[in-house]
């Protein structure tokens, strides 16, 4: 095996462990918004993701099977979501269908309040989490950036909590970094920053704040060059993670010279 530097080793061996499963990449991708399956596949490969969300919709003979096959071809684990569900009842039924169709008990639980904001409905989310955990699902709960709710979901048995940075598809970045830090500091399950990511620096920031992973779709699938953007997020997540582990310097009010004043040449 090729000799690696200490730095390279630290970059390579830092898996995300969820439900006992090791994922080599801390970037979780969505598949929504891609104009073509071929383009989507190339972007996913460029992003390095090993876990990718799909939605459950009515079967149409014309477009069947191909996405499922695409993910299988690239060895990408599938994370079905309950996108489009407004009630706990619909979300639970959708999760049950996903478990049957895709043979996984992992589910990204999305219960949204309305189509305008696409924000999670906290009450339905709590109800659905409780029911799904009781039915043996591993619940990845998409939630508001609310530290109280995040902890509540964890206590109900969520496998991971996924606070939003900003509303879905907005690309506004992380609107409340303080809350994200607070969620991270109190969580003992993985925290995945989900939704609102616009560009690479947003993902790096999420990791610097201490998130265990980042989930995004639109920022890549609707970028002018999705493959290039996928690649940039691959690096951003690694960079942010390394910076978090390295420990950043404290912020200071005034300048601090990095060169010693002692021993300067004196010019008379």
């Amino acid at each position: 095996m090729e000799e690696t530097t200490l730095g390279a080793r630290q970059t390579l061996r830092d898996p995300l462990v969820v439900d006992g499963v090791e994922l080599g990449s801390r970037l979780i991708m969505g598949t929504g918004g891609a104009p073509s399956l071929d383009g989507l596949g190339a972007a996913l490969v460029a992003s390095g993701t090993e876990l990718t969300t799909v939605a459950m919709r009515r079967y149409s003979p014309a477009e069947s099977g191909s996405l499922f096959q695409l993910l299988a071809d690239h060895n990408i684990r599938v994370l079905p979501n309950t996108a489009g569900c407004f009630t706990a009842r619909d979300a639970v039924l959708t999760a049950e269908l996903a478990r049957e169709a895709l043979e996984t008990d992992w589910v990204k639980l999305e219960v949204i309040a309305d189509e305008h904001t696409l924000l999670p409905d906290a009450l339905e989310l709590v109800e659905a989490t409780e029911q799904l955990v009781a039915r043996g699902f591993k619940v990845f709960a998409y939630t508001n950036d609310d530290p109280v709710l995040a902890l509540r979901l964890e206590n109900l048995g969520a496998t991971a909590v996924m606070p939003l940075g900003a509303p879905i598809g907005t690309g506004l970045g992380i609107l409340n970094p303080h809350n994200i830090e607070l969620i991270v500091s109190r969580a003992s399950v993985p925290v995945v920053l989900d939704a609102g990511i616009g560009t690479a620096s947003d993902a790096a920031l999420a990791m610097e704040l201490g998130c265990d992973a980042v989930l995004l779709a639109t920022a890549v699938t609707r970028a002018q060059d999705p493959v290039l953007m996928g690649e940039s997020f691959r690096h951003a997540v690694i960079a942010g993670r390394l910076a978090r582990r390295a420990g950043r310097i404290p912020r200071r009010e005034h300048a601090l010279a990095s060169s010693a004043m002692e021993g300067r040449a004196e010019f008379l």
Binding site: V54, V78, L97, E100, A101, L102
Partner: peptide, 28 residues
């Protein structure tokens, strides 16, 4: 109500049944 795959063979449909047949598509 979800019909588990293992029971498809043994489950007869009835007149007026409402069936949803779903699969994975792009999303999330």
């Amino acid at each position: 109500e979800v019909v588990p795959r293992s029971q498809w063979h043994a489950t007869a449909l009835a007149e007026g049944d409402d069936v949803e047949l779903v699969t994975a598509v792009q999303g999330g």
